[in-house]
């Protein structure tokens, strides 16, 4: 009986062999039935992508183009199928966005193309595909990743949407700043709002949840930055649009409230080392609207100051805020029509878009910068929990 000598890592070549007839089972167990909250929680980030790629490597090694095509097509269709089925679940969409990107990076990193090999180890360069150029499939995967990203944005928008107006505008994070005596006992902390309303803390907690799930899935840092920038844009646009449509939101104290809330969001960015994500800049129109609520609005100098300060607001938005502005008490005067005319005259040369509201549905174009992995394929082991016993390491 041959000695059962355990093969050392160095003997494996980082490929996975499977029978053609087992491909449906591979797709079912690794994609369709895999639960991100279930066994996937304990996987190394991107493991499904590495497994699929190691299967592609073996089919390439066999020089079997049909097997390569079939696996790639089934993989793409499998991911689309699971996202059709569970596409409103943030964890599922985030999980397959990060695995689709990792699969795309593997196809590049091991393509044999010079530009993608710069960070490869010698061993990794030995693991490059030998027979097929999969550049066209990489393009299809990139198209799929864009679709998944847009789906992720819709999911997080649906979760955030109900929180924004209440958390950013209505709830008084700074108690009493509006001059209204807090009813009954002063609320202990800003996160305890009336039943069912959201506070700024609710929004921050949700941002934390999104961020930790994406980190847990091993999502590329550059992609996390783009998701966060998109989230902040949505928060800023929805908040500003509501401010522009509600007289009760245009007061000095609301300006103070908004500036405080924005500072808390900036604090969150700093905590997560995301100050360079472009997210803060998407809040600029809201920040300027809040400042406009707080600055003096009487003299020529005031008009000059407002025109130079509000470069991220359109003329229509500036005029609207000034028209809606409501003095917080009888000692304060309303904004005079003549002052608003003065502003309009000063801004008449701007080539502003006429629309009043921001496009809260706008999705920034997404990019997937190449992000090679240092993980050595020959060391990857398949956990039994994936029920992939019909696949063997080569």
């Amino acid at each position: 009986r041959p000695l059962n000598i355990p093969r050392k890592e160095k003997d494996f070549q980082g490929m996975l062999e499977y029978k053609k007839e087992d491909e449906p089972k591979l797709i079912k167990n690794l994609i369709l039935d895999l639960k991100p909250r279930g066994v996937a929680v304990n996987l190394i980030p991107g493991l499904p992508a590495y497994i699929l790629f190691m299967c592609v490597r073996h089919a390439d090694y066999l020089n079997d183009d049909q097997k390569v095509r079939s696996l790639l097509t089934s993989t793409i269709n499998g991911i689309k199928k699971i996202l059709k089925k569970r596409g409103d679940d943030f964890e599922t969409v985030s999980f397959w966005l990060s695995n689709t990107c990792r699969f795309l990076h593997c196809l590049k990193q091991y393509s044999g193309e010079e530009g993608f090999m710069k960070h490869n180890s010698t061993r990794q360069n030995e693991h490059c595909l030998t027979n097929f150029d999969l550049a066209e499939y990489r393009q299809v995967l990139s198209d799929l990743a864009i679709q998944i990203y847009q789906q992720l944005v819709r999911v997080l928008e649906n979760i955030l949407q109900p929180m924004i107006v209440s958390g950013m505008l209505e709830h008084e994070t700074i108690q009493g700043v509006s001059g209204v005596k807090p009813t009954g006992l002063r609320k202990r902390t800003s996160s305890i709002a009336d039943e069912g309303t959201y506070t700024l803390d609710s929004i921050v907690r949700q941002l934390n949840t999104f961020h930790s799930i994406m980190c847990q899935h091993g999502t590329d840092p550059e992609l996390i930055k783009q998701v966060v920038k998109q989230m902040f844009y949505i928060i800023g646009a929805v908040t500003l649009n509501n401010l522009l449509l509600r007289k009760d939101m245009c007061s000095w104290s609301k300006g103070m409230q908004i500036r405080y809330n924005v500072s808390q969001l900036e604090e969150w960015l700093r905590d997560k080392n995301l100050m360079n994500s472009g997210a803060k800049e998407t809040l600029e129109p809201l920040i300027q609207a809040a400042q406009l609520l707080q600055v003096k609005k009487k003299t020529d100098e005031d008009a000059e100051a407002i025109c130079s300060m509000c470069n991220a607001l359109t003329t229509a938005q500036i005029v609207k805020v000034l028209n809606l502005y409501t003095p917080v008490n009888e000692f304060e005067e309303r904004v005079l029509v003549s002052f608003i005319r003065n502003i309009q005259m000063r801004l008449r040369d701007r080539k502003d878009a006429p629309q009043l509201l921001m496009d809260a549905k706008h999705i920034f174009p997404v990019t997937f910068p190449f992000n090679p992995s240092s993980l050595a394929l020959e060391t990857i082991q398949i956990p039994g929990s994936l029920s992939l016993g019909f696949i063997s390491r080569v």
Binding site: D65, I76, N131, D133, Y137, V140
Partner: peptide, 29 residues
Amino acid sequence: QRARPRVLLKAPTLAEMEEMNLSEDDDSP
């Protein structure tokens, strides 16, 4: 220097893959 160039595998678009999938689903009992 590589022995021979890799063969470019022509890929269907996402939409074409979807059609393939639908036809397979139709075939499946």
